[in-house]
């Protein structure tokens, strides 16, 4: 084993700045209006061979005046269908799906404000020691003009009522009404399963955001 290096002090984190209105240039160049990279990251991560139930997640992101935002970067991070993250720190005894990275990136549409993610429904993941298993959920991260530090939240599934009622994160949100802002309703459309997850940045229906 290599000796632990001497660490003189902690380095302060680099300060966050807004992603600005043109975040698409760097992160979703096609949406900005041009082709540059051969391989583009996308919001469609349920490719062939990925195990699990195909789902569509879509929604709109509203500002404090109730207007639909049309320039927001949306990224999601999730476990695979068995409930395991594709990451070395996840040592749960569950199957790894090498074809599923678990990360999606998209932007809200410039006209409709709708974002869409094609993925699979994640399995439930172990909670912290001494806490209950976490209900199936997807971590969200939002960045845009007007957002100084990326906003983290979680989406849960309305048809996982039993698991949600035991979820250690939902349960420490003091007001039950606020928990509901994280639970996405399910519907069927053209044979596809759609979960609608609208996010309210501010106001009466404000979504719960986390300091993670």
């Amino acid at each position: 084993m290599t000796p632990t290096p001497f660490i003189p002090s902690y380095l302060p984190e680099t300060a966050s700045q807004t992603a600005g209105p043109y975040v698409h240039i760097g992160l979703i160049p096609k949406q900005a209006g041009f082709e540059i990279f051969e391989n583009n990251f996308s919001g469609d991560i349920a490719g062939p061979g990925v195990a699990g139930e195909r789902i569509i997640i879509e929604g709109r992101i509203f500002d404090g005046a109730g207007h639909v935002t049309k320039d927001v970067l949306v990224e999601t991070w999730q476990a695979n269908a068995a409930g395991r993250y594709n990451h070395p720190s996840d040592t749960q005894d569950k199957a790894l799906d090498q074809r599923f990275r678990g990360w999606a990136r998209t932007g809200t549409d410039f006209v409709t404000g709708l974002y869409t993610i094609h993925t699979i429904k994640p399995g439930s993941v172990a909670g912290r020691k001494g806490r209950k298993i976490m209900a199936p959920h997807i971590s969200f991260w939002l960045a845009s003009r007007g957002i100084n530090v990326g906003l983290a939240t979680r989406m849960y599934f309305c048809d996982e009522e039993a698991a949600n009622s035991e979820d250690p994160v939902l349960n420490i949100i003091e007001q039950p009404e606020r928990r509901k802002t994280l639970i996405a309703p399910r519907s069927e459309r053209d044979g596809a399963t759609v979960y609608t997850f609208d996010i309210h940045l501010q106001g009466d229906r404000e979504t719960v955001f986390f300091d993670i």
């Binding site: 807004t18 500002d63 404090g64 005046a65 207007h67 935002t69 845009s144 003009r145 007007g146 957002i147 100084n148 906003l151 994160v169 420490i172 949100i173 606020r178 940045l201 501010q202 106001g203 404000e206 979504t207 719960v208 955001f209 986390f210 300091d211 993670i212």
Partner: peptide, 13 residues
């Protein structure tokens, strides 16, 4: 930032 900032404190996790 005025209309795009949450008014309720972040929930520490």
């Amino acid at each position: 930032s005025v209309l795009r900032s949450p008014r309720i404190p972040l929930f520490s996790l």
